[in-house]
Design a protein around this nucleic acid. Sequence first.
DNA 1: GCGACAG
DNA 2: ATCTTGTCGC
Length: 225
Amino acid sequence: MSVPADWPTDESTALAEQQRLRPLVSATGPAPAAGALVAGVDVAYDDERDVVAAAAVLLDYTTLEVVEQATAVGPVAFPYLPGLLAFREIPAVLEALDGLTVEPDLVVCDGYGLAHPRRLGLASHLGVRTGLRTIGVAKNPFTFTYGLPGAERGSWTPLVDAGEEVGRAVRTRQGVKPVFVSVGHRIGLDEAVAATLALTPSFRLPETTRRADTLCRQALAAAVR
DNA sequence: GCGACAG
DNA sequence: ATCTTGTCGC
């Protein structure tokens, strides 16, 4: 894997890059159609050895069967800094996505999109960078506020930041802690939530995320051994 | 000023 | 993210 030549290496450059990309995000667009190809992406690290592994897994939106998958391994491109996660994950993710032979109709990211201090989380950043439709599905509420959604699958509450709805806390499984969904790029919030539920028939997290998580860990282990 | 803080 | 086995329960 190779990090883009102009990739930021310091915080102030990264912040300036977010400021530049932020106006390019679109928060409107359809949910995937039946039979669409949806990709899940995730990344695993071994900071001690300066190794990162990314995975992209393509699923059929209707059957949830795996259509194809790809991985990429390389050096860690950026340190973890809250609010700048995209700079750490995107180089590896881009290369894993390049390994797919078909362009996905939607990419599901492990993290946030517009729900971000400067409204440019990982999913939105990746969307603008690639032009692909993206959403973010996170496991933690980050710095945002939300009310607990009803216990039944499908219920949700607004995820709020500075008095603004930036995403939703969505119950994907009865009685299980909600996931936090936000728009990435070229899709609406209602549609992002609908897609999340469609991709989550049995567990708390979308099948896309679960498949990509397993695969990137596997790729990391193989690279480090 | 201090702490909290997606993965 | 990561350190980490078996085990309780549907």
